[in-house]
Design a protein around this nucleic acid. Structure first.
Lengths: 158, 158
DNA sequence: ACGGAATAGTTGACACGTCATCCAAGTTCG
DNA sequence: CGAACTTGGATGACGTGTCAACTATTCCGT
């Protein structure tokens, strides 16, 4: 490997600020959702994807694909959510292996209660301090980084 | 609570792109560090903070403050790292409660081996797709969001 | 039809994070 | 001095994420 090109001061600051924004913003939003609605961000994500489809029922693997989660991760998470009655399972008659995940009334109530205050929190802690240009710039940056990582990185599931 | 102001399309895209950048970039960097150096990002962080100080030894609570980690989190992590001989502990003679965390030779070797390829990965997956203006814009955005979150959010430790 | 490959999903082990709790050593103040 | 309080740090319980292994179907080629 050639000489390492270390980060200069601006890059250092940028990188640290980016990392710190992730941690503090993520922590703030998680805490908000947990205390206001008794849901984790992950619970919320699952519920969002379920409410997005007809009948609020999905095969586990479709849900995994839609969320870009590993099957194993989703399976673990679904069993925790099932214990709390946020989701339920139904047998799939056409394919004896699989199961449908269904949104329970409790699950629907939970997400409907959680969504407004979550959006408010995202606004307050994020969009309220950004200009229109900031939003454009960030979108462009994120899209490029995502493209780069996905082109570079060979990850197992995708 | 008043009418919820939902995110418009641009905001939706921005928010999703930001979240996705976090996950894919974080995953790529973790995977890189794990496979190349057998360290997690958290191990790396601890080692960085230890190498940053004289004698590579710190009290647990100073380390926690410097890293902005909860004591409990750090304590758990240090015991895992101690099992792998990346760090060691020494009694503190002046304060019978406390302990010093010291960098072991193995720990030093690990971070010296990991640092260059980590920086390379950060460059390749992040800075290489950003212009100077992007870096400025992102830094400014992150600094503002951090300030907002820290002003708004009352979190237990800080 | 049958045997091997692909698919659906679960499970177990372990790393990591948070919260609440605990203990022991120091500090304060009557 | 001694009781109350604070501080340093560890621990246990539980939610979360990843990896590897596993079971049970279904699919597919001959």
């Amino acid at each position: 490997m050639a000489e390492t090109r270390w980060l200069d001061d601006h890059e250092q600051h940028a990188w640290r600020a980016y990392l710190r924004m992730n941690t503090v913003l993520g922590a703030a939003l998680s805490r908000q959702m947990q205390t206001a609605s008794m849901l984790s961000m992950q619970d919320f994500e699952v519920l969002v994807h379920l409410t997005d489809v007809e009948d609020a029922r999905l095969r586990v693997s479709e849900l995994a694909r839609a969320m870009r989660w590993e099957k194993s991760r989703l399976s673990h998470h679904l069993s925790r959510m099932e214990k709390r009655a946020l989701i339920g399972r139904e047998e799939c008659t056409s394919d004896g292996r699989g199961a449908f995940i269904v949104l329970t009334p409790e699950g629907r109530a939970a997400i409907e209660a959680a969504a407004p205050s979550h959006v408010d929190a995202v606004r307050r802690q994020f969009f309220d301090v950004l200009t229109g240009d900031d939003v454009k710039a960030l979108t462009s940056i994120a899209d490029r980084v995502i493209a780069r990582v996905e082109a570079t990185d060979v990850c197992p599931s995708e």
